[in-house]
Design a protein around this nucleic acid. Structure first.
Length: 327
DNA sequence: AATGCGGGGTA
DNA sequence: TACCCAGCATT
């Protein structure tokens, strides 16, 4: 067999006892140390959906209060589907990535229309909803419907790499398909829910990106990265990882403009300004400009118009002749 | 494969 | 300051 000249299947190199050891160690740790999170106390697919959209690129601590507020404002999928979009955008502050709010409501509307109000329970069905990618689809299938599916987010990617491959280096990075294959290979039968949650708890509290607490880690023995680093006396690991990141970053380093001059910054300013207006009220671009940019001049009008058009295209604002407002 | 998209917390 | 984060869609 000469088929694996490519490292296309890292999982074929994994020893079965290595896998089972990592599984039992991590599941035992999770049983004792798991975080108490509200979306782990429910299997309401709608609540899980809300939590997963909020958690995209957003830390748990920041989602916690907003999760409760959002469910109070829109207790069911049907409530969310018929709510004014402006209300949804208003509740979203300050989570950021405001398009998520619009897409979440669009998902609710699509599920009402196409799925009789029932959120799909398969990865394939979930992927048909705009705003739900492979991670979120896997998470909802697993956490709401207890399907035995693997799913890979940034935490799980990092933790699996360190346990089963070693310290992350540019050459050892797996592409998405290979990483998902690894995640499927090591998924403990019948334990997908606990395993996926455990990997994320591990990544968030012990096996962090820059400064992992390896000395407090319950997987020292089965962890390839730990063995690697201890062999070369590379602890404390945070120093090593940060150093490696610096080297990797050198290649792609570029001079970026200050955030407060970016498109993204001003989009945020505009939406935030519109949120402060009385419900339904529009504001003209001429009045809007100086409110989001102190040194605004007439020459900036085309710039502002492009900005607002972009927001309208994303469904974040309602842009008409006589001004702009939340949709 | 690269880019746009928010915002707050942290070293 | 720069980096980080339960990603996704678009190009």
């Amino acid at each position: 067999m000469s088929m694996d000249s490519q490292p296309s299947s890292i999982s074929s190199q994994l020893a079965p006892d290595h896998i089972t050891r990592a599984q039992s160690d991590l599941l035992r740790w999770y049983a004792a140390e798991q975080r108490d999170l509200p979306w782990r106390r429910t299997s309401d697919p709608y609540a899980i959906l809300v939590s997963e959209i909020m958690l995209q690129q957003t830390q748990v601590d920041r989602v916690l209060p907003k999760y409760q507020q959002f469910l109070s404002a829109f207790p069911t999928l049907a409530d969310l589907a018929v709510a004014p979009t402006a209300d949804v955008i208003n509740v979203w502050v300050p989570l950021g990535y405001n398009m998520r709010a619009v897409r979440l409501q669009a998902i609710a509307q699509q599920v009402m229309a196409q799925y009789d109000g029932r959120i799909p329970d398969t990865v394939e069905g979930l992927l048909s909803l705009k705003g739900i990618g492979r991670y979120t689809a896997g998470a909802i299938a697993c956490f709401a419907y207890h399907k035995q599916v693997a799913t890979v987010d940034t935490n799980i990617r990092r933790v699996l790499h360190r346990i089963f491959i070693g310290v992350e280096q540019p050459e050892t990075a797996l592409n998405d398909a290979a990483m998902l294959a690894l995640a499927e290979q090591v998924l403990p039968p019948g334990e997908a829910y606990n395993w996926n949650q455990a990997l994320m708890d591990m990544g968030a509290t012990i096996c962090t990106s820059n400064n992992p607490r390896c000395m407090a880690c319950p997987l020292q023995e089965p962890c390839k990265a730990y063995q690697e680093m201890s062999q070369h006396s590379l602890f404390p690991s945070g120093v090593v990882l940060r150093q490696m990141r610096k080297v990797a970053e050198k290649k792609t380093s570029y001079q970026s403009q200050p955030f407060t001059s970016t498109n993204r910054y001003f989009r945020g300013r505009i939406v935030d300004l519109l949120r402060s207006l009385p419900a339904g009220e529009r504001i003209t671009l001429t009045l809007l400009g100086p409110k989001i940019k102190p040194e605004y001049s007439d020459a900036d009008q085309p710039w502002l118009q492009r900005l607002v058009s972009g927001l309208a295209k994303d469904g974040l604002v309602d842009y008409a002749e006589d001004g702009v407002r939340l949709p």
